[in-house]
Design a protein around this nucleic acid. Structure first.
Length: 150
DNA sequence: GCCAACGTTGGC
DNA sequence: GCCAACGTTGGC
């Protein structure tokens, strides 16, 4: 069992959207490190924190599970998609995605400020300077600790 | 293979 | 809206 954190802008796709649709392909990841983690390490049943980025209160807002393991991201060869990438094609897909499934919304947002201030989380990738990865692994210890902060 | 230019992320 | 950080691109 692996734990993850996945970022999304709530104006584009927030946890309330996921709650409505239940299952969603996590499309649009165009970063190799993030792709590789989805492709190589994410397993069905893994748990992921849903993180709201680029918004009034950035932070962790809930939980989801990995519902379907990695497969090709078809938005990459859709010319009308904002995620279009001319270098990807159905024959040679460059990008992949997983399906995520809604699990729960926390009764409050665990803010980035709070996570940064927590001494147990100083080596958590999210709070490190310059981190821009939209998908990152979370250790079991960090997962347990964050769950106790709710 | 180097590196400058450029684009994106995302907090503030 | 600003800008630091950092990834990618492409000329050489």
């Amino acid at each position: 069992m692996n734990y993850w954190l996945m970022k999304s802008e709530p104006d584009v796709f927030g946890i309330h959207h996921l709650k409505e649709v239940k299952i969603e392909p996590w499309d649009g990841v165009r970063n190799y490190q993030a792709r590789n983690m989805m492709r190589d390490d994410m397993k069905k049943g893994d748990i992921a924190f849903f993180y709201h980025s680029n918004c009034e209160q950035p932070g962790i807002v809930g939980l989801m599970t990995i519902h379907k393991e990695a497969y090709a991201d078809a938005t990459a060869w859709d010319k009308n998609s904002k995620y279009f990438d001319p270098k990807s094609s159905p024959d040679n897909p460059r990008w992949q995605l997983v399906d995520v499934k809604y699990k729960r919304t926390f009764k409050r947002t665990i803010s980035l400020a709070e996570l940064k201030a927590d001494e147990s989380l100083t080596d958590f990738a999210l709070v490190k300077k310059g981190n821009r990865l939209s998908i990152m692994p979370v250790s079991a210890q960090h997962y347990e600790h964050i769950m106790e902060m709710i």
